[in-house]
Amino acid sequence: MEANDDKSPSKKEAEFDWFDRPESRRLLCKLLYAACAVSVIAEIPLFFLHKRHGHFGEHSVDGWIFFYASLGFIACSLMIIGAKWLGYLLKKPEDYYGEPGEKTLPEDIDESLR
């Protein structure tokens, strides 16, 4: 893939855009569901054959089947919803602190952009 300086996409070359296509997005989505299913189903034989115990006593929650799947799902949902709610309180426009915007790109940016 040859990169070009120009910011507009070059039409001449066939660009690698697999991830933009709706069909590949659908495929990736299915793969994600499959990975979730596999990881959850894989625990079933493990649970009954190896008798996985909790680390915090005989009957502790972390020994229950699908504990980690539930934890991942619940914890992440809570964190996203919590962050969303906090966002109403904490999110402010970018000029909130009234800092001066930069007129030119800083020195550490690629020279060809300046």
Partner: peptide, 16 residues
């Protein structure tokens, strides 16, 4: 490995 993958895959699911 299985429990870690459960934790992570379900998190990824939640993200999307």
């Amino acid at each position: 490995v299985v429990t870690q993958m459960q934790l992570l895959m379900l998190s990824a699911l939640v993200f999307f």
